[in-house]
Simulated scan of single mutants.
Amino acid sequence: MRRVSPHDRRRFRRLPATELNLAWRPRNRLFARYRNIQGHDFTREGVAVTAAADTFSEGDRIELQLELVMAGTNLTAQGVVAEVVNVARQGHQARVGLAFDVPASRRFGASALRARLGRMEGILERSEKQWLRSQPLESITGLTG
């Protein structure tokens, strides 16, 4: 099990987003193109990404495309509205916390989007558990002495 910081404000355990492709665009520009962005962890409530330090500010609202890459059919969610809730700058890069605003995401109904995000979280969680089973115990942080 991974160690949790006492300063962690998340309600749900973070999951690595190694199989999740993300793209974003500003919320207030209708014809803006989506730009790829690197995701780090994911829950049904939000996602953490890395961006250039001056890309986002707290309170910004953006639109996301999420694609969970699987062996068969990929699971996607498009037009998901998110709010920037945390920006931790580290030199020229920033780690940015995005919280999903499900009621504002009009592409899906709110309950359908919640179900899709929950399904993505479940798939990533099972993937992480499978990866952990294949690792030697000594290499897993928090299990050894």
Score class of each variant (00 low, 15 high):
residue 100 F to N: 01
residue 76 T to L: 06
residue 38 Q to P: 06
residue 41 D to R: 06
residue 62 I to C: 07
residue 80 V to A: 08
residue 63 E to N: 00
residue 81 V to N: 09
residue 49 V to W: 01
residue 57 S to D: 10
residue 62 I to K: 00
residue 86 N to H: 15
residue 44 R to N: 13
residue 55 T to H: 01
residue 47 V to E: 02
residue 78 Q to R: 07
residue 83 E to N: 12
residue 84 V to K: 04
residue 80 V to G: 08
residue 42 F to R: 09
residue 78 Q to W: 04
residue 57 S to V: 13
residue 69 V to Y: 05
residue 41 D to T: 04
residue 43 T to H: 01
residue 80 V to E: 06
residue 83 E to V: 15
residue 40 H to W: 08
residue 58 E to Y: 02
residue 57 S to F: 09
residue 65 Q to D: 06
residue 74 N to E: 11
residue 100 F to W: 05
residue 56 F to R: 03
residue 98 L to N: 04
residue 70 M to N: 12
residue 60 D to R: 04
residue 86 N to Y: 11
residue 77 A to M: 02
residue 96 V to E: 00
residue 39 G to S: 07
residue 44 R to C: 14
residue 67 E to N: 10
residue 46 G to W: 07
residue 97 G to R: 01
residue 53 A to I: 05
residue 44 R to L: 12
residue 85 V to K: 12
residue 84 V to Q: 08
residue 89 R to N: 07
residue 94 A to F: 04
residue 92 H to S: 14
residue 57 S to M: 09
residue 57 S to C: 11
residue 54 D to V: 09
residue 46 G to S: 08
residue 57 S to R: 15
residue 84 V to C: 15
residue 70 M to H: 06
residue 53 A to F: 06
residue 54 D to W: 08
residue 86 N to T: 15
residue 45 E to L: 15
residue 58 E to D: 08
residue 69 V to Q: 13
residue 74 N to R: 10
residue 41 D to M: 08
residue 68 L to D: 10
residue 58 E to R: 10
residue 62 I to M: 05
residue 75 L to Y: 07
residue 72 G to C: 06
residue 45 E to D: 14
residue 48 A to L: 11
residue 98 L to Y: 00
residue 81 V to A: 14
residue 63 E to S: 07
residue 44 R to A: 15
residue 43 T to K: 02
residue 88 A to Q: 14
residue 41 D to W: 03
residue 65 Q to A: 13
residue 40 H to T: 12
residue 68 L to F: 05
residue 96 V to K: 01
residue 55 T to K: 00
residue 89 R to Y: 02
residue 74 N to T: 11
residue 76 T to H: 07
residue 94 A to D: 03
residue 48 A to N: 11
residue 45 E to G: 10
residue 73 T to M: 11
residue 74 N to V: 07
residue 71 A to S: 13
residue 76 T to R: 15
residue 100 F to D: 01
residue 41 D to I: 06
residue 41 D to Y: 04
residue 99 A to Q: 13
residue 61 R to F: 00
residue 84 V to G: 09
residue 54 D to E: 13
residue 75 L to E: 07
residue 38 Q to I: 08
residue 43 T to E: 04
residue 84 V to T: 12
